[in-house]
Every structure is written in structure tokens, then in C-alpha cells.
Amino acid sequence: MSALPEIVNPVEPLLRTERMPHIWCPGCGIGTTVNCFARALLESQRNLDRVAVVSGIGCSGRVAGYVKLDSFHTTHGRAIPFATGLKLANPSLEVVVYSGDGDLFAIGGNHFIHAARRNVDIKVICVNNLIYAMTGGQTGPATPSTAITATAPYGCYEPSFNLCALAEAAGASYVARWTTFHVRQLTKSMGEVLRKRGFCFIEVLSPCPTLYQRRNKMGDGLDTMKFYKEKSRVRNGAPTSEVALTKDGEIAVGKFVDRERPDYIESMRGRLSEQLGDRYVEMECPVCQ
């Protein structure tokens, strides 16, 4: 056994280890999703110099600061339009947006639906902890009805978004939902979107033991993982209209949508070359090789 080489965590090269330990709470699932993402990237055999991560603001927005890739921590809700500009200026990049439910669907909701409509070739990973965690646990667009939050002390009475249905209706090419319990499936799904062209969306339910589960007497991170295990049903291909989440009900997981649509650049190129013929000039990307 003494001949064994030094063994390092396979995800280590993808992390800014000098910044560890990270800021996420004990039992928070964001790190688990990053772990899956790192493994999916390694398995994809992609040139990691060509993968960029763009985050918004919030706990999940901090992902950009921990992955050892070109990474952009942008403004609240605007990761998607930033990513759109980055991708269009350098189409050789794989651009992944990594952010949370509040960032992507409240303040950034408009950008989400329009990027899906355009089918911009970006991959959106939404860590859904059902709450605004960084600011102390306020109601968000994905907070289920009756859940207690910092700004809904008597229980939330707004309906929540069904994120997967919204993504599909807006035009996403790929829509899946997993939880942090489903690490293998999540890793596989992340690998699939890295191979797919177009606007892809993965929702990952993740514990926020500090601010969501605690207030709702749902235990700690581990209890939440067991809850996910117990409540989840794999329903690949289910109509997204049937996968809405409730506070205590079934959690439908799986790949719901996987379809082919021309992406933004393809549509642009097709139309402009049809109309302009030889006069159409592709954008020269100074960085592309």
C-alpha cells in the first residue's frame, strides 16, 4: 500500500480551494450541487478553460466565487442577461448560469422567460431552497403556500411558481428537476445539458436548514434529505403542469422536457444569411480559436 500515489479529491482542481471553507451553512445543499456539477464537468471531458459560470446574488450566487473557472458574480437577477452577452460574444464558451430561486424567478424572472424564449444556448441551474436565504429567510416566488418565512410570519398565502412549467412554457429546450438527495441523477442531468444546445434548465431542491426548515419545524439538513428521499417520485416525461410543488406533498423529479429547437445564434445566422446572402458577415470573436 505504501506505493499508492497521493490521492486527491477529483473535484479539487475545479475549486478555488484557497477560499475554503465556503460560506454555506452546515447542512445547506448548495455545496452538494456544486459537487455534482464539478463531477459532471470532469466526466464531460470538456476543455474547462472554455466553461464560464455566471451567478446572480444570494447564497447560490456565491457559487461563481468557488468554482475554478472563469466566473462572474453579477447583479441581483441579472446573471442571465450577462450570460447572454458572454455567450453571443464568444459562442465557443459553455456558459452556465448558477443561481437561486429568488434571484432567477423574482427579480430576474423577466430575463429568465425571455432567454428561454430566445433559446439562448446557456445552461441554467437553479438551486431552489424555497426562500431568500442570504437576507434572512424571506418569502420568495417559490415559497410554498402556508410555509412560515421572515416576511410571512403567519404562513405564506401567495401561490408559488411551478418553475419547471414556467421554463417549458417560455420555451426551454430541456427541463429537469432533482433534489440534493439525487446526486447521481443530478450529475447525469448536468452532463446532459452540457452536451445539449439551447436553453436548458435544471431545478435542484436544496435544504436551507437555517432559515426554511428551522422556521417550518422540518428539522436540519439531514432531515430534509430524508424528506426528499421519502417524498420524491421519479416521473420522467411527466407534463410539467402536474409537477407543482407543495409544502409537504410529493416531489416529482425527473427529466420533463428534452426537445430540439433552433438556438438563438442558429436562428440569427439562418435568417440573416437568407436575407443578406454573401453580405452577411459572422461576428469575429477575438477570443475564439
Binding site: 477529483p10 475554503m20 465556503h22 445543499g29 455545496g31 459537487n35 447521481r184 439538513g221
Partner: peptide, 9 residues
């Protein structure tokens, strides 16, 4: 699998 689940690497 422990490595995949670990949120803290």
C-alpha cells in the same frame, strides 16, 4: 457516494 453528497468537499 459520500464524496458526491458532501456539501463541503
Amino acid at each position: 457516494l459520500c464524496g458526491m453528497y458532501c456539501p463541503d468537499f
